[in-house]
Write a protein that binds this DNA or RNA. Sequence first.
DNA 1: TTGCAGTTTCAAAGAGGTTTGAAATCATGG
DNA 2: CCATGATTTCAAACCTCTTTGAAACTGCAA
Lengths: 116, 116
Amino acid sequence: MEKIEIPDSIRCELEEKGGIDGIIESLPDNQKLKDIVSIARALSDPVRVRVLFALSVQPMCVCLLVAMTGYAYSKMSYHLSILKEGGLIYSRQEGNYLIYYPTDQGREIVERIETL
Amino acid sequence: MEKIEIPDSIRCELEEKGGIDGIIESLPDNQKLKDIVSIARALSDPVRVRVLFALSVQPMCVCLLVAMTGYAYSKMSYHLSILKEGGLIYSRQEGNYLIYYPTDQGREIVERIETL
DNA sequence: TTGCAGTTTCAAAGAGGTTTGAAATCATGG
DNA sequence: CCATGATTTCAAACCTCTTTGAAACTGCAA
């Protein structure tokens, strides 16, 4: 697998690191990769970033999020479901309302983004 | 804007925070939002996460990345361009080769992901 | 039990991202 | 200047994500 022409400057450093195979081994494993991508996907739409940040200031029912953004319920529901899949928010029924909260991971990520 | 029915538990906390308008003001501004989304989008494909992590171990020419992943040049080039747009990597010509490096921001982000 | 407010689900349409192979570009060595 | 290897660009096909409105579901109160 190592029979490829590359600049000397790189060949040298590369061999110290175990060649291509050494690098491949140091990469995140498949589960970790899935988690990263799922979180990134959750954050790759401005609607969802706003919602996550808003919820990390103040947990809210869907109707409040709808009032805040002006989006349709079904649209908001769709975006909430992706944030949920990414493990960034969760919901609890309270009476007639569903209240959404950031998870610990959601808060952690908001924090890391804020200090970027 | 505040004439909406919401559970008391939330109405109360919400008012302390300046109501809906208070929360909207605390959200990331449009430029910040664009930056976040652009970075998240760059990380929302496993190909690109792998490439970014690999480059942060060892800067590489495209041919090495192609050898490492088995992808076509054009495909690799496409993904590199998105990582570049996100400000996560940059390239320098060296002889016949284009070498890709992580930017400071790219390294920072890899670090924050690794310690998540 | 009926009705209603809050919310999700669904399917279809629309928009945007990814892959592919062929052609263009660009630096280097002859 | 020409040929070559490295890489990008391009357009078409393909696939996935997002939006939309209508219908279904859920918990509560009458």
